[in-house]
Computed example of a mutant assay.
Amino acid sequence: MKNPHPVKRFFLHVVLASTALFFTACDPDSSPAAPKGAYEKGVFILNEGNFQKGNSAVSFFDRDTKTVVPDIFKTVNNRPLGDVAQSMAAHNNRAYLIINNSNKVEVVDINTFGSLGTISGLAMPRYFAAVNNKGYVTEWVNYGSKGRVSVIDLNTTTVTKTIEVGLMPENLIIFNNKVYVVNGSENTISIINAGTDALETTVTLAYSPNSLVLDRNNKIWVLAGGKKVYNPDFTVNESQSTAGSLIRLNPVNNAIELNLPFASRKDSPGQLKINGAKNILYYRYAGKIYQFDIAATALPTNALLNRNFYGLDVDPATDLIYGADAGFFTANGKVVRFNPNGTPLDSFQVAIGPNSFLFR
């Protein structure tokens, strides 16, 4: 068979190339995904507001345009969020907003922030985590009494069970189908089996654990504030108080592998956070921010930031450090961002009492 004429061969190549381009352009798999909502990508800032004023809010920061939307819950749902926003968590394209003094959890679509329901009947709720389509909420219940963890059916957004834990339970994490809860007014962690929703064991460690994270080696780090005894003038009685500690816990056997006490009995460390690579810890102590490599065996002596913040976190996508400056709760607060080496980057205004962040 003869080869086509050179001119015919040229036009044949043009037709084939055009046909390939047509099918590529029409291939639905090559088209960019449609946006899921206005808040699909960015940073949520939770602002707790003033006690009994019902003026808590969620601000949204767009990393690309550096613009801020001040109160997205009220804007989308045409009603206020509630009284004292304590914390915020995400699970399966939903956000769970824990509103402490309103004794509820607001559930929203995390991409649009449209309301999906309200979990009520809680008692001074603090923090939320989820696994197996179940949510777990820590609750103080009453000052001076045992706290509890409420188990939430996330399909119906209803409480199905409550589990008694220690005094004033605070933050919690879930690992290997276990729920680890720090009890803020004693020296214990409660461990709940997420399969049976029963208290499995209690681990004793330093007094007043307040926050915990899971590192890349699947070790749990706990920050404890220490026990504080106060003088009549409300200063700390250092001779009767205990120092805080940074503790590494092995969840395989619940053994304490490392216990690093802080130098001062007066100051309480808090706000333990971890970077995206899960190898660097950050925490607040004595009015400054410190950085700690998980391979280290001694606490750092030099601060990363000589500033104190009401809220602290690290963006896992960029490693930028976010500090929440609440001021005196008499006006809008602000967020200050820092590069990983501690140099200032920028700042922006949010609402009253910023206390925490959620990154997307």
Rank of each mutant, 00 (worst) to 15 (best):
R63G: 00
V165I: 08
L223S: 07
V159Y: 02
A263D: 12
H13S: 13
G184W: 05
P32M: 10
L21Y: 04
L258F: 02
K146W: 00
L21H: 01
G276F: 10
N218A: 12
K8Y: 07
F262W: 01
A243W: 07
S31E: 12
D215F: 04
L172Q: 12
I289E: 09
Y230P: 00
K66W: 01
V350I: 07
P6T: 09
L281E: 07
H13F: 13
A277S: 15
G225K: 15
V149F: 04
L154H: 04
D233A: 05
N237I: 03
K104F: 06
L272Q: 06
V108K: 11
E186Q: 13
V149Q: 01
S268D: 00
S150D: 03
F113H: 12
N111V: 01
A57F: 10
A89C: 05
V131K: 13
V141C: 07
F262P: 03
D27A: 14
A243P: 02
I247P: 03
L12D: 07
P169T: 07
F234L: 13
I110E: 15
L305M: 11
A331F: 09
V336Y: 00
S347G: 03
V43W: 03
Y310C: 00
L258D: 02
F22A: 15
T204P: 00
L205M: 11
T242K: 09
L154P: 00
V179G: 13
Y282I: 02
A286E: 07
G287Y: 08
A57L: 08
I72Q: 07
I189N: 10
P251E: 12
T318Q: 10
M124N: 13
V229T: 11
S190K: 10
F338H: 13
D315T: 09
L305P: 00
N155H: 07
A57K: 15
F60K: 06
E170C: 02
K36N: 10
A206W: 01
R79N: 09
Y207H: 14
T297F: 06
I274Y: 04
Y127R: 07
P316S: 12
Y283P: 03
T158S: 12
I294C: 01
A130Q: 08
D267Q: 13
V14C: 13
I289L: 10
P354N: 08
K266W: 04
T202E: 14
P125I: 01
F175Y: 15
D267T: 04
V336R: 06
M168E: 05
L223N: 11
